[in-house]
């Protein structure tokens, strides 16, 4: 058994392109599942499969740091939070019809149109990078910005991009406080906030929208 992976002969067979297309295919299929599946919990699971494949694609595109981060942040935190939200709000056993008659076609039409537009711009443009790359390579910063190794990312992150890095931490702190404030009972808010917010069920289903359940 070859004792180390990285001296395996890569170039004889385009394994990474093949892998890329597998990941892309699985990602797109699970993406479709997310939008079409009846039960939201299954949509959640499909979304997680999609995130994992995206992490695979990042690894293939030469930056494993981003792949690990994606796994950690998206699959570990955001997806778990979404699943928690689904559990809190969804009644498991009675799947409800989720779209009215005309709505899917409008959405379909809009997104297909957008995709056509994007596809045209992408395939027609010629990305002439050769000239551009070496012109910026000799720029002032000591870090070699062309090699995507983790140490370079770290250095680049903290020297030229130090300010946005701190800003991001402020944003996350603000979200933390906002989320906690939202989760508390609203009856703390001043009395004139209309119907008491924590009445278990809103007094009357708004007559305008017929109950669709």
């Amino acid at each position: 058994m070859p004792f180390s992976m990285d001296i395996y002969a890569w170039d004889s067979f385009p394994i990474d392109t093949l892998l890329f297309w597998c990941f892309a295919a699985v990602m797109l299929i699970s993406g479709l599942c997310v939008v079409t599946v009846k039960r939201v919990f299954h949509a959640g699971i499909a979304m997680i499969v999609c995130f994992v494949c995206a992490a695979g694609i990042y690894a293939l595109l030469g930056c494993p740091f981003m792949a690990a981060l994606q796994l950690l942040v998206y699959v570990g935190a955001i997806a778990t939070m979404l699943l928690f939200a689904v559990m809190l709000t969804d009644k498991m056993m009675e799947p409800r019809p989720n779209t009215t008659f005309f709505q899917p076609f409008m959405g379909l039409f809009a997104s297909v149109l957008l995709f056509g537009l994007l596809w045209l711009t992408v395939s027609s443009s010629k990305f002439g990078f050769a000239g551009w790359a070496n012109s910026t390579a000799a720029s002032s910063s000591a870090i070699d910005i062309t090699s995507l190794s983790t140490t370079n990312i770290g250095l680049r992150l903290l020297t030229p991009y130090a300010v946005p890095f701190e800003l991001i931490s402020v944003i996350i702190l603000a979200t933390l406080i906002a989320a906690i404030a939202l989760a508390r009972k609203e009856d703390r808010s001043p009395a004139d906030s209309g119907t008491p917010a924590d009445a278990p069920a809103s007094p009357a289903e708004p007559a305008s929208t017929p109950a669709k359940e």
């Binding site: 949509a43 979304m47 999609c50 994007l118």
Partner: peptide
């Protein structure tokens, strides 16, 4: 393509959590 699938999800889904999932896509 993934972006458009996400957009379709946001536009058509009735359950707001599924909408959020489309946004994440």
């Amino acid at each position: 393509l993934l972006f458009c699938i996400g957009l379709y999800g946001v536009l058509t889904r009735r359950n707001s959590i599924a909408m959020l999932m489309g946004l994440e896509l």
